[in-house]
Amino acid sequence: MRELVLATIADQPDIDVVGEVGNASELTAAIEESQPDALILELGEFEKGRAQCGFLLGRYPHMRILALAPEENRGTIYWAIVDVRMKPLESSESGILSALRERPSLVGTLHS
């Protein structure tokens, strides 16, 4: 999955990959070190992943999170403005690229 996403974004002149990790235990250290604008995350279990994204945005509110469940062809983008917001993300190359380029807005479902 990581390699597939890298293949999608590697050739984009306006996107830099600043870090990759293979498991969740290395994630916070990598975010602290690289301070990314966006995090792309594969969700094993979609519902559990929502809580994980809420936690990460509480700690790193400047970041957008693209949470993907590629085997289910679905994803969600999470971001924080006042509160944690979310909206569906298309699990495709164009969906990922436009989500990475999008500016955060107030339009989105509030994360409960």
């Binding site: 390699e3 293949a7 999608t8 590629p70 062809n73 699990s91 495709s92 990922i96």
Partner: peptide, 13 residues
């Protein structure tokens, strides 16, 4: 392939 992301990335590769 059902997985769209996989399909698109594999076509590219």
């Amino acid at each position: 392939t059902e997985n769209r992301l996989l399909r698109e990335a594999l076509v590219r590769i």
